[in-house]
Design a protein around this nucleic acid. Structure first.
Length: 401
RNA sequence: GGGUAGGUGGCGGAGCGGCCAAUCGCACCAGACUGUAAAUCUGGCGACCGGAAGGUCUUCGGAGGUUCAAAUCCUCCCCUGCCCA
């Protein structure tokens, strides 16, 4: 197998589409013969500066490109964030200050460092060039598209059919994203399948600007922990790449069984045959394996193993975790009532919520459910408390300073 | 600009003067069960006081008004869909 085919095989793995593959092959060929790395673009909306496993799918692909010697351009869409991606109309986005942007950029770099080789990664902000466009330029961009084309985009047509509003500025989003590709002279752009239209807009505009068109690579959209909707912070079904080992492990254990295969494919390097074999075994063990693989990828094998044993300790054997956070309580009026103490420390959202929890048997003190009424903390005793499924803490008496 | 239908809790969507803190579904939380924080079943799901019974406060686009009483009626305003221009 020659080098081109070898690279192609690596890139093809796990992707949905390469549009068009022939052009991609040509680009690879040229890159190899001229010893000139391809410019691989990946863009992200900085409104929620938290990368999660859903983002990791395309980013892992970027890593493949880096390993093959290509150049990765990680674009933070600070300017386009002002418009908002049309997928889901929310209220006007707050305008980020330069400081906030700078800060966000840094957090991206930190998070991306878990997945990418930062030495080989270029971080860019699209405000750099989009801010300079004048109205004439914008009109030029719009002339490359017709309303019908834009409206054809799935989420637009759906919203239009359902009688949901579409604001005019949203029409501009794909154009701006496409112009990013012009400004960056990208050879390849990677995104999830839902981004296909936006990614293709880059091709249209590059052509309009007399450039060679980028190749579009789409990767699957990862379902979130609910197993239904795509992983997203807004749906609250996401697993951040910065999650602690324990948290990450537990969240993965909570995915529905039928999602395991997908997660193995998109989020681990376990080869195809390995996945088959694991999935043919006991589902609980398969899921533990999955959780271990992913957790270890981000936290190292030792932490992965620890997370696994803690998980079994807490949820299978129903023991307390080996380490419990300590909180102090004082002897003052209502503070001695357990619910008030918890509420005061923001460990439960409200007193009403705490009472509900208590009524449902969701509060345990020293291993026993608190059944009737308020539990009174008696100084100077210490208590091991479990609130709900996940919160363990030790309340220690402390005299008021 | 004209016509018309709407704006209700995280979302979808009932209610259309008192019994509404607001049916129901999804989501979420807890308990039971289990192979897991899966699935399933049960309960809960504005805040505050109370052990409880119960009470108080703030909510149905916004501002006023009518009424003993409004998410429900009236006035003005804001926002959105659709049709026509």
């Amino acid at each position: 197998m020659n080098e081109i085919e070898k690279q192609l095989a690596v890139i093809r793995q796990g992707v949905t589409e390469i549009i068009p593959e022939t052009e991609f092959r040509e680009k690879l060929k040229r890159s190899l013969s001229k010893n000139q790395p391809l410019r691989i673009k990946y863009g992200i909306d900085p409104t929620a500066p938290e990368l999660h496993l859903g983002h990791s799918v395309p980013i892992r692909k970027l890593r493949d490109f880096q390993n093959l010697g290509h150049r990765v351009i990680f674009l933070v869409g600070d300017f386009t964030a002002l418009i908002g991606d049309p997928t889901g109309r929310i209220e006007t986005r707050p305008i980020l200050s330069p400081e906030e942007i700078k800060q966000n950029l840094q957090t991206y770099q930190e998070q991306a460092s878990k997945l990418l080789d930062l030495e080989k990664t270029e971080f860019v902000l699209n405000s750099t060039w989009l801010e300079k466009l004048n109205f004439k330029d914008v009109i030029k961009l719009t002339s490359s598209f017709t309303v019908a084309q834009i409206l054809e985009r799935d989420d637009f047509s759906q919203r239009y059919r359902n009688g949901n509003p579409i604001s005019l500025q949203e029409f501009l989003y794909p154009l701006l994203q496409g112009y990013d590709s012009v400004a960056l002279k990208s050879d390849v752009e990677i995104g999830a399948t839902e981004q296909k239209f936006n990614l293709l807009a880059g091709r249209t505009l590059q052509e309009a600007f007399g450039m060679e068109k980028q190749v579009v690579i789409t990767v699957p959209i990862l379902e979130g922990t609910d197993g239904i909707r795509k992983m997203s912070k807004t749906y609250g079904n996401y697993i951040p790449v910065t999650a602690t080992a324990g948290d990450m492990f537990g969240k993965i254990m909570s995915i529905p069984d039928n999602l395991m295969e997908r997660y193995f494919r998109c989020l681990t390097s376990v080869p195809e045959e390995g996945i088959k074999e694991i999935l043919s075994g006991h589902p609980k063990e398969a899921k533990e394996q999955l959780a271990f693989e992913i957790t270890s990828f981000y936290h190292g094998k030792d932490s992965g193993r620890l997370a696994q044993s803690e998980f079994n300790r807490i949820f299978s054997q129903k023991n307390d975790p080996t380490e419990v956070t300590e909180w102090s309580y004082h002897a003052a009026d209502k503070l001695q009532q357990i619910i008030h103490t918890l509420a005061l420390n923001s460990l439960i959202p409200s007193i009403s919520e705490g009472k509900r929890l208590l009524k449902n048997g969701g509060i345990k003190v020293n291993g026993a459910k608190v059944i009737d009424g308020e539990f009174i903390l008696e100084p100077p005793n210490s208590y091991t408390i479990k609130v709900g499924k996940l919160l363990f803490l030790k309340l220690v008496y402390k005299q008021k300073p």
